[in-house]
Write a protein that binds this DNA or RNA. Sequence first.
DNA 1: AAAATTCGGGG
DNA 2: GTGTACGAATTTT
Length: 815
Amino acid sequence: MPETVQFYPVDITYKIINKKANIFLFGRTKEGSQICVVDDSFEPYFYVTPKKGAEIAKKLEKIEVEVKGETAKVTKTEQVKKNYLDKEVDAIKVYVSLPRDVPVIRDVIKDWEIIESIHEYDILFTRRYLIDKNLIPLTLVEAEGDIINIKSRVPVLKASRIEQVSDASLQNPKILAVDIETYNPEGKSIDMEKNPIVMIAFYGKDFKKVISWKKFKADDLEIVESEADLIEKFKEVLDNYKPDILTGYYSGGFDLPYIDVRARKYKIKLDIGLDFSILNINRGATKTSSRITGIAHVDVFKFIRRILGTQLDTNLYGLNDVAEELIGEKKIAVELDNLAEAWDTNKDLDKFAEYNLHDAKITYMLMEKMVPNIIELVKIVGLPPDVMGDMGFSQLVEWYIIRQENNFNEIAPENPHNDEIKERRMKKYEGAFVFEPKPGLYDNIVVFDFRSLYPSIISSHNISPGTLNCKCCVEKDLAPVEDAKYWFCTKKKGFIPTIMEDLIERRMRIKEIIKKEKQVNPLLEARSNMLKLLANSFYGYIGFYAARWYSIECARAITAYGRHYIHKVSDKANKSGFEVIYGDTDSLFTTLKNKTKQEALKFVEEVNLDLPGVMELNYEAFYPSGLFVSAKVGSLGAKKKYALLKEDGKLKIRGFETVRRNWSLIAKESQEVILKIILKEKNKEKAFNYIKKIIKELLDHKVPVEKVTIYTQLQKEISSYDSIGPHVAIATKMRDQGMSVGPGSMIKYVISQHGDKIRDKAKFPSEVTSKDYDPYYYINNQVVPAVEKIFEVLGYSKEELLSKPGQKKLDKFFK
DNA sequence: AAAATTCGGGG
DNA sequence: GTGTACGAATTTT
């Protein structure tokens, strides 16, 4: 008896069964249970375009290649009319029996003379399926078929029919947040192989739990016998809770890989996939990501940093700062450095358990807050949720474009290969335009945000790789690019602008609805936000070296038009009595001078009446005060470097990157205090005197050693360093003294007065006192550089900072 | 100026 | 998995 089921797909994979590719869709049914739907009716394919007049279909069909004892062959071909970069092409759709045959066959034909180009041989099979079947993850799909008997944690339905039934999305995905604490002696680097997981916390809806393997008392704590049991328990919790989304804060790069390493140690099979497949850790050269079949593992840290990153005020993406900004929650303050000792002596472990659980809780809350964004992004782009955190906006744009292809009968350009990428990266085009900030301290700053600028330029000027310099409109409506003639077709709308406009229009419709609705609707807000972000990324995408639809000509035309429009609004603002002090690609920072906020709002309205089409200026924000610093970067313009005081008293700081750990505390503190004094109290004198005081304290050796200690992590084996920095010199000494140092070790040092080169002057913090540190180093290389630019703006030169009344000669030390 | 190195997130 | 990947800032040479 065939059954019909409606469900929201959460994850997708495929397996080869009986020499056939079977798609597995895992999801949550309308009724709330989990299900897996299998479809074996989809065949892998790619496209080939032949050179003019070449007859290649027959040749293709004859291909047979032996690979590891299996034969890969073309099963059939179809002649198809396609569009490629807005031009019609005759293409051949080449079918093969298994996804893995695609690269094999492609490899055979890639150098054939009679072939013009090969397309879409690297579109992942599961993604191809979702696109061609018009299925959107997390959105209601109906399948009909029979329940079959396959090893699985959830019922499996073999589908005879599967289709999208509506755009209703999964309302309350079941979220489980996980967080581990590990044994990590103070000062030692994290070592997954060596150090055990000591506790693990879970937080879900009506569910919280900490598991540990030492006996102590704490709320919601369950004690097990050993670390191995803890890992078994982790599996059990996951199996019982049955989340749609598993999350953690950097869980993709830390918690899950850590659990994986520990599980291997005990030979525990982490078969947590809904099909009993094991946790899949992808250790790339630069990043690690983790996936679980059937469960969307979304690392909320990665998602927030990549997707919301630019919208947040914080420069630090640690859980504490991010949670504070987004949900107003902080971490519990405990000294994590003491956990290892606490574990050894079994003291205060309850505090750490509490801390552990709280981290899981705020991670859960963050994910709850992100879910609307994730759902909307999934719906726009059409990819499953677990990749959302791993992708940058350029990739999301690309997949959005690819998802739209079928509606326009387009085929995608190839991904650029290595040498092509290198070549593209060399070409530094004029890039995003930035008004250099006029350095200074300003009051009453209003930010006008011009975010839809680039998207609307793309749309209104029909900018697309396929409409560039068309034969039908030669030199008509030239883009304002200085040294080149670019024009875009005025007769036929390009593929890219068309789908781009669709994003903008959808967003406008949603904004209309939001306006009409009385209550705040987080899902609609998120949709609007994600549509905007995606539309805004098109320009970056077109100029991104690794993009399929890359076009430096288009990118240059877009920025050229952008300059044109932003100049216009900027001039208008100045004429209307505002003063533009800084401008970035899509925003203008102005001071109110003697205007009011209301007048600023009115100005925006006026400008908008004047702006063509979909273009729109927003009143973005107000800051009571702000400090702008000049930061020239070569000939390519200025860089963001400013500090703003928000109305709630918090600071928004960009470009002052002393937050990194390899700055001494004295430098970090000085900068922070100075910015606060200047922006909140507006007292130059006080700031100046503060720095003079710090300098004096340094000279008098009154600054404690902790504040002049610098932390640098050893990245590789000592022997493989070409240049010996201070931390390498210290590491060598440590090794000679029989201490174990290697890649990952955190090296602490103080720059002392004894020695010539910096590396000779570096000493262990423990072998020096305040008398030994080199005050001139800390003044010249730490404190002054951290605040120099700020004081420049206020009219104090570096020399003034350093001069000491009655000691004129002193400045010869400061070079 | 070029080349080498580090940070970030997690404990 | 039909793969696939930093980028920016800072210091040393």
